[in-house]
Design a binder for these strands. Sequence first.
DNA 1: TTGTACGCGTTATCAA
DNA 2: TTGATAACGCGTACAA
Lengths: 337, 337
Amino acid sequence: MNSGKITIHDISKALNIDSSTVSRALNDSPRVSEKTKERILAKASELGYQRNSLASNLRTNKTYTIGVVVPRLSRNFFSNVISGIEETAYEKGYSVIICQSLESLEREKKIMATLFSNRVDGILISTSMQTESLDHLRPYLNHGGSIVFYDRPRYFEGCTSISINDYKASFKATEHLIQNGCKRIVHFAGPQLVDLYKNRKQGYLDALQKYNIQFDASLIIESKLSEADGIASTKRALELGNIDGIYSSNDTAAIGAIKHLKMEGINIPNDIAVVGFNNDPISSVIEPSLTTINQPDFDMGKMASHMLISQIEDKTKVKDSQVLDIDLIIRASSLKF
Amino acid sequence: MNSGKITIHDISKALNIDSSTVSRALNDSPRVSEKTKERILAKASELGYQRNSLASNLRTNKTYTIGVVVPRLSRNFFSNVISGIEETAYEKGYSVIICQSLESLEREKKIMATLFSNRVDGILISTSMQTESLDHLRPYLNHGGSIVFYDRPRYFEGCTSISINDYKASFKATEHLIQNGCKRIVHFAGPQLVDLYKNRKQGYLDALQKYNIQFDASLIIESKLSEADGIASTKRALELGNIDGIYSSNDTAAIGAIKHLKMEGINIPNDIAVVGFNNDPISSVIEPSLTTINQPDFDMGKMASHMLISQIEDKTKVKDSQVLDIDLIIRASSLKF
DNA sequence: TTGTACGCGTTATCAA
DNA sequence: TTGATAACGCGTACAA
């Protein structure tokens, strides 16, 4: 009982051994005889001793904790990334503090201050959509902290990033539609202030160019890519006439498209083929099942966590940013007969 | 630059003011004159001072951190709960440490030790499927920590729980099938060592009884409720003959059922109606769309977080456990003509 | 192998 | 209103 207030000094007194020896024993130092080590460990568990990491961390200036800043936890993609992060962190003996920016720069700044004051050993961050300048990260870096960007890569003072090759994925997706006979492909683009969506658009454009398909600016419809946006964009696309393919920057909007096309009695894929991006669980369930890009979310989290921890533990080795490849998952929505 | 190593002593020296006064100023204590307060704050930001919470926490024995133990982050339900937890915690000035047990008791024990040693102010936990005894929580409680159980309620030493009325929800779901003409309803039950699944089964049983439908033990098929389990269970159900309804303890298995029934050319809902549990995003997309139980996951997280923090901040007030109500979302899979 | 002595950065207590 | 001092619990040079 009352096991929480036991300190090394209590063990020290109970055994008439100096607290420094107790400390060494608990840290399994070789500079303590096996015999006293055993006595100490026995007493520790008898008293229900639990180390106070606060004191230990203060003393050693090391917390075995990493901070994760995520735009929004409830998005499937991010929660899978975090799941991966947590897994690797756990294996390496690190705890994970999670904070959501909700795409707000102000929150992101507060979060950085909190993580700093808690002296986390490193930070994994996917910056908010509002974040342009990265000045608020500087104090933490100057302090000697390590930062790795995930999902949304940034170039910043020797920090590394881990992300997905959006351009290439997008190129592949568009190419796939072309090879399945599409000539007039509408692109549902995301907010162009986000690099990731810019890259997806560029991949689309370059694929068209490679196959000598003439570019028509009206075929690019920008939105925030919600399901409702997908429906609205589809309506606009149908008004353009002669559309035979839709490539959406995410699955959510693509699902909207499929729903609307079905309602209009348009055959997918023969009249209009559809390709999405993300490989949401839904994409395999909807009918017709949705061709899409699979992102290695879980693995991305594992790798990010791995990169960060190896940077924390071996500062000398400068690592390179990583760009993960992506798979095109071909399903019914794009295979014309 | 080098802004990380600034302590209150540096400010103290630079201004020739004692560090205790600096500390008071930084904590906005009323016992410092406005004038010196201003000077101190100015100097602090000039030097790029960042408080060291480790030291502060050690001294005050308070961390403004709560630990969350979750069986599996990548499940939609849990990530939404955590999203809610994080939201309320952030509002109240608490950070959140997240740990996954992956349904392993061994991991859960380690996690408890870590959270304890980090002196988190409170813990929100959904115990693993392997967890029967709660002895590993005792040291933390004795220490004076607060624990709130979420999703999977437990009775334990004055701790409170927040959960969902699984029994009632299950009763409702089964009743709905009966009222739609089902006479022989198969129940996909989850692992019966988990209370939650026990309650769901009981709700099913009691609904049958209320409507004088004779009980047939072979109609209850237990599994871990993966999609593959759902398919396997459906095969077994079909062998039983004369089935006209399936009530599954989660959507995942229900989706498996729908897929298999469609493959067999069985009409849903006219031949066999299907009801799930969880209101996964998929449930509204699959065809036919799935009737299911909606759980207020995000709100549950907010409330859990709220309960815990108010317990932390006002130990005297003993709160009651909460049971949240649930909605039956009626869709195409259960409406017979 | 063990003990001595001190410091990590902050805050609480007491005195001025 | 401010200053001096000790204490939170642990880890580590250094000495023995």
